[in-house]
Computed example of a mutant assay.
Amino acid sequence: MTPTPSLLKPEPYTPQRALYLFKNYADSDNPNVIGPEGFERLCAEAEIPMEGAMPLLLAWQMNASEMAKLTKEEWVKGTDIFKLSSLSALATALADLESLLIRNQKPLERSNKKDPYDRTQYWKYADDTKGAFHKFYTFCYNLVKPPQSRNIDMETSMAFWSVLLVPKYPIMTEVLEFINEKGSYKATNKDLWTMMLEFCTTVQPSLTDYESDGAWPTLLDDFVTWKRDKSSNGRPGNAMEH
């Protein structure tokens, strides 16, 4: 199904247009929800890659309560904050956030030209990218965790880490290799999820400043032992840098 030109054109924001855009992807049996099928079609038609971070950034900015689902209320609030009501503006906003928070690109330059969407929120994130990413990272854990569970299964955790952390912290490539090789870690609780980001942001890639008595999760202690053993056996890991 090809989106109509009016959905693609970067037209000025109006609440009515934003609602029209929502209705185009809402479930046929529940007009108040964009379900997984509509969410995927929305991303496809806006040329938002499903395998990257942009769909997660979309969920975060809409404050979605469920994975690959958006309610009308979430959509109305989210699109009003960014003042966007076209696929073009949506794609631009998400690409800007991905560049800033995932790819560590320099913030956009402020200009007098009319922005394709309201960048007020973007500038707030640009003023504190570390804090913004931490909020986004925490949101993703709550988004993907099953409601009745305290954990995320390890396969899902690894998929999320590969999207959220690998582009920012190359050492995560080796962490994922280690988890894969071991195959004995089954789930991620909130502490491990939080400490994985802490590890990436505070420990040198050389691991010289890693303190095994520093209350790190067992998985990270095991990873450091594994990497040091690899290095001492003449198979040094890649030179990784933050």
Rank of each mutant, 00 (worst) to 15 (best):
E73G: 05
A59Q: 10
T138F: 09
F39A: 10
S99C: 11
E66R: 11
Y141F: 15
R235Y: 05
Q121F: 03
L219R: 02
F178G: 02
E47K: 12
E109L: 01
V144H: 09
T138N: 14
G183Y: 00
K9D: 13
E211Q: 14
A46C: 07
K106P: 01
T208G: 01
A26F: 13
V166R: 07
M62K: 10
K72N: 12
D213P: 00
K106Q: 14
K135G: 06
P12A: 12
R17Y: 06
M195R: 15
M240K: 13
K83V: 02
L87G: 10
W60C: 11
N63Y: 08
L101D: 03
S6V: 05
S149C: 07
Y169E: 00
P167C: 13
M158C: 14
D209Q: 01
Y117P: 10
L42K: 10
C140S: 08
S184N: 06
D127R: 14
N180H: 14
L94C: 06
M67P: 02
M158A: 07
D222N: 04
M195W: 04
N238P: 07
S6Y: 14
D213H: 01
I171P: 00
E211P: 02
D229E: 06
T208S: 02
L164T: 15
R235T: 14
E181Y: 11
K106G: 10
T156C: 07
S85F: 12
K182W: 00
T173Q: 15
W75H: 12
L197K: 10
P12R: 07
W161L: 04
S157Y: 07
S111Q: 04
A53C: 10
L108K: 15
S206A: 07
L164I: 14
D213R: 03
A95M: 03
N104I: 01
N32V: 03
N112V: 00
S212V: 00
N189S: 10
L220V: 09
V166S: 13
A239F: 13
D115Q: 11
C200Y: 07
H134S: 14
L7G: 06
K124C: 08
D128L: 08
S149N: 05
A126S: 09
D222Q: 04
L101W: 10
I48F: 01
M158L: 07
T173L: 15
L70C: 12
P55N: 03
V163D: 15
K145E: 04
S162T: 09
E211L: 05
M158Y: 02
R41L: 06
D209W: 00
T120G: 09
D213V: 00
E211G: 03
Y117L: 08
N151I: 13
S232A: 09
L165I: 08
K145A: 06
Y169H: 11
K106V: 03
T14M: 09
R41V: 09
A132V: 12
F199N: 00
S206Y: 01
E51F: 09
K83A: 15
A89G: 11
L19Y: 14
K190H: 05
E211A: 09
A68F: 10
D118F: 11
